[in-house]
Design a protein around this nucleic acid. Structure first.
Lengths: 196, 196, 196, 196
DNA sequence: ACGCCCGGGACCACCCGTTATT
DNA sequence: AATAACGGGTGGTCCCGGGCGT
């Protein structure tokens, strides 16, 4: 079994990763320099490339870290609770997140808007997250429908995509307006008009 | 009568303005350099600052140009047609726009996601566009309700904000996925479940 | 006979000239841009080269304006008063000037220090001013000696050069220290130890 | 034993530092670009900011380097020799320096004249050098007086300031006139009329 | 025919993401 | 693991001339 090369090393990488997530989230990909990241992490500049192959690789790391923090697994049936309850809990969680990160929006949506286009590693990773996220919501929607908690007739994946789109749009609007209102209205509308 | 100072001048500024809009739209604010803009416009670099005070000032110009191209005035009662018809026409127009600019998303949403935060000139301009856009939609919704074309009970401005959020989210998702599907589903859902 | 083309024109040139003198004096030759000068003068930028051939030509203008304001002609016998009295009056005048322009030093000395070297139009103009200035002082010194007001045996031009050097050094020291002390001490020493 | 991180590093920094001193001395602060410095040093452009935080930081380095080369410590009693002898030796040294750098004047005086004003890092560093320089001269003057080598009654610091002012003025006059005469006359006058 | 605006492009200080060296 | 090297790039400014408009 491999022993960790050095405690400092693993810790440095961790700090780099965390600083990067925070900075990418707040200032975007192009708005964040690797200089910014290493100084926020308190690491020497050249060290960066011992831990990550490139700035893009770090962005990929930030995407998966961010996605992991989204707790989409709480939508899964194995998480317990009624299907609709799991969805509303997730939405509530998302609303709280948006409030916490009022001035940053959602990292996934930010990257989706900023990164030039398709066929780019970061863009693909973001799209994959969206796909998995939507799939998780869609799964819960199907279960809710089966449990007779929800009667919308549209395909579950369409409903899920609609919700995700609304969430992302509300998050960026909240960011630019500096207000939680758009997000609260999105949440209210979604609960009362879509998840019925 | 106002004298056009110089034909060449106005034309150069125009070209700068158009190049900037295209580039900001495609590559974002931080992803576009002044150099990129002037070379796309075929103008010498030093000329740039004869026409615009800064890169930020140009971005402001791009925002208003883009907003003007959104034709929100077609939502106005003075544009003729039934209120709901005007809204659906606007939505159709937006859908076509999103298809045309599939790889760019919506400039307003892109800037909203990329630009750090509130209390920034570009951010404020974007927010003002959103506000006016939402107000235009809300106005048409109120008229549609009066005309008995629409029966949703939520405040018109909430409905309008919800639609805008969904549109922006769908646009960025379309961009990152390289597919028109998210936008089409957004349009379908909005027409069948919200504007009723 | 040429009529003054336009009142505005002459006035603009005047304003340009005055702004330039003030700015060159405060910020140096390389530290002052023609942009700075035209905006301080409230003149349109392109107009500049209608009035002056180049930035260097303007600097030459500033040098002669500044030199004219030095009132070296008050050292001349035609100005009346005892020779030594004229010198001390001039020194007093210079001291007051240095106090007024505490943060700028002497334009001539500033240019002498900043301008690269000999065989440069501005440098030559400055040197010519120094030569004329020293000659005026030397003339008064000779007269003072004849009038038995002064008994130093050194050649008058050496005495004058020494005084000028001390004045320029004191002016720049006053500038950098932000204090009038170096100038006051120079004046006191010169009166008590040199002009005797 | 401390390991010199890299031989190349220290050497590059050294070359940058030396090139900067020479260029600032010859062409002034605003007349010298970072580009000029790195190409004189034969260093790649981006390397500059690995060694110095800014152009101003380099200027500060040049000031202390220049001041160190002034050998003011030879005025100190610990340097041996009679007090007045130490002063005259220093003055002789300064005269030789001025001859060597005939077309450049004194870096300290040049900066004092060029740099806008007080409350600027470079200006403050220059003023501090002047203060220490004057203090060293004043110290030797006091000792010379005690040793009965010198009988001037003015405060030593006033005498020292007067000498410094004269030296700086003579250096800039020598520079602009391209002649050693002003400096020689300053030296002669100082020795025969001040240090007595 | 003159005053002005814009054209023009080299240049400014400084920073970029990355890699070779130690 | 960490430094300095690397050079092209950043947004912005330079001084100046040539052509347009009155």
């Amino acid at each position: 079994m491999a022993r960790p090369r050095s405690a400092a090393s693993a810790e440095t990488k961790q700090r780099l990763s965390e600083s990067a997530l925070a900075l990418f989230h707040k200032r975007g990909y192009n708005g964040t320099s690797v200089q910014d990241i290493v100084s926020a992490a308190g690491a020497p500049k050249g060290t960066f490339y011992n831990h990550f192959a490139s700035k893009e690789a770090l962005a990929l790391d930030s995407v998966s870290r961010y996605f992991a923090a989204l707790n989409v697994e709480t939508l899964d049936s194995s998480a317990g609770g009624s299907p609709l309850g799991r969805i509303t809990a997730h939405l509530r969680f998302l609303g709280d997140l948006a409030e916490t990160y009022l001035d940053r929006g959602c990292l996934l949506g930010n990257f989706a808007s900023e990164i030039p286009a398709h066929s780019n590693a970061v863009g693909e990773a973001v799209e994959e997250c969206f796909t998995r996220w939507a799939a998780a919501i869609a799964g819960a929607i199907d279960e809710a429908r089966e449990a007779d908690e929800l009667h919308a007739t549209e395909p579950a994946v369409v409903l899920a995509g609609y919700i995700l789109a609304g969430y992302e749009g509300a998050a960026s609007r909240s960011k630019v307006s500096g207000s939680t209102e758009p997000m609260q209205q999105f949440l209210g509308m979604t609960l009362s008009r879509i998840l019925v």
